[in-house]
Nucleic acid binder design. Structure first.
Lengths: 229, 229
DNA sequence: CGAAATTTTGATCATGATCAACATTAGTGG
DNA sequence: CCACTAATGTTGATCATGATCAAAATTTCG
């Protein structure tokens, strides 16, 4: 059975290529030694910054995963994005963050002072361009997510999510999700029961295979892609 | 921090709000005569650019309204944003637009060649900062919309929409919507019948008053605001 | 004025939410 | 290592919100 072969996978959790890859040469502005960067590690569930706090740093995930979310007054939560290894975040314009960022699992980030970036951007067009590309990428992701939340069915949302995670975590058809069903639901604008049901149906149809709850293998990526619009 | 310097940039951060106000002196990069701008007028429903086309220009609405949307393969449409007088759009990084932009009503836009802006941004930090502030504003708007689409009820979505339009079109409690119920529905992730029903209920409760279908008066803004989360 | 487009309203339906119970997994201390 | 507990996830039953189908009313425009 498949779950067996997955269970026989290396005991050490393997997070696909992003976590295993050395991020050093991918690091944010690594070509600019005048920018002082610091590493920080946050435990599972720990807050990196909160909505309304002053934005002092730009962050890049070195390993782990971060959720960025906003709450409605009655406690409903909407996760706007997951930040995985290599992703930059915290690039707000304006004085304060407009979302809360938390480590989903133990996460190490690279931090750069906003003020030093600002200075570098003024004298170095390459820095400005890289910042531009980063925020444009975030905007693109947000627009994709708007289409998903506004117009896709529950099954389509989950299919899109699985393909996105495959692409971002491994692109090898097999990956380990860092986040819970509740996090996924709050990202996809669904309830966790709905996410669980859709995943179960995909498993029953042989489109995906699960080992444990977090380790997922895509057995029929073409079918997932055609479910998605 | 960077955002501070943006706020202090020698550019008025608030463009004209109303359709009637003369936007000439607020125009995009008016302090930079080396940037050649052109005016263009598009009739009701006319396409300004399409998804997948090469991004050659940045646009600013002088008067009128623009909808920016993407389609799913089965024809479902999701409007990501409405651009009203003063708003800039088309700031994609990368070669192609990732949404289609159409004039909702007769609309005049100011156009700047993307390439000339790029050149200007490399030599002039103020231009780069203004571009940064514009795209960061778009990102903020997209994140607000993600919360609406992911977690708000139909009634909350309509309430949020009416308050947003009031703020952006008039802020005087009375405004004329440039867009149809269908456009509103495709923006809010609802069907047009649902939008119509919610508006009718708000009218019955005396929260809003309608003159014709497009002219709306907010009679109880506090109630709308508390409906919204 | 008349035709087409848009909007409203009503009736019914389907999707996903909610409530509830149970199963599984992960974490903790003996 | 196992037992115990808490956290997470699955599954079932029922409900509610908003979608869909349909028709009438209103507005817009030639």
């Amino acid at each position: 059975m498949l779950s067996q072969s997955l269970a026989q996978a290396p005991v050490r959790p393997h997070w696909g290529r992003t976590l295993s890859r050395e991020p050093a040469e991918n690091a944010l502005f690594s070509g600019h030694p005048e920018l002082i960067t610091t590493k920080m590690t946050y435990g599972r569930g720990k807050r990196i910054f909160g909505e309304g706090e002053t934005a002092e740093y730009v962050y890049q995930v070195l390993c782990g995963a971060v959720r960025s979310y906003r709450l409605l007054s009655d406690g409903r939560r909407q996760i706007g994005a997951f930040r995985l290894a290599g992703d930059a975040f915290g690039l707000e314009s304006g004085l304060t963050h407009h979302a809360t960022a938390e480590a989903v699992i133990e996460t190490t980030v690279c931090i750069i002072k906003y003020r030093s970036l600002e200075l570098a951007a003024k004298s170095d067009a390459a820095v400005a361009c890289e910042l531009w590309a980063m925020i444009a990428g975030e905007l693109r992701g947000a627009e994709d997510h708007i289409v998903l939340l506004g117009r896709k069915s529950a099954a389509q949302r989950v299919a899109t999510f699985l393909l996105e995670m495959d692409r971002r975590l491994a692109d090898a058809g097999q990956f380990t999700l860092p986040m819970s069903r509740c996090d996924i639901a709050d990202y996809l604008g669904l309830r966790l029961e709905t996410v669980s049901r859709v995943v179960s149906q995909l498993q029953a149809k042989g489109v995906v295979a699960l080992a444990g709850r977090r380790q997922i293998q895509l057995r029929d990526r073409a079918r997932l892609a055609e479910m998605d619009a």
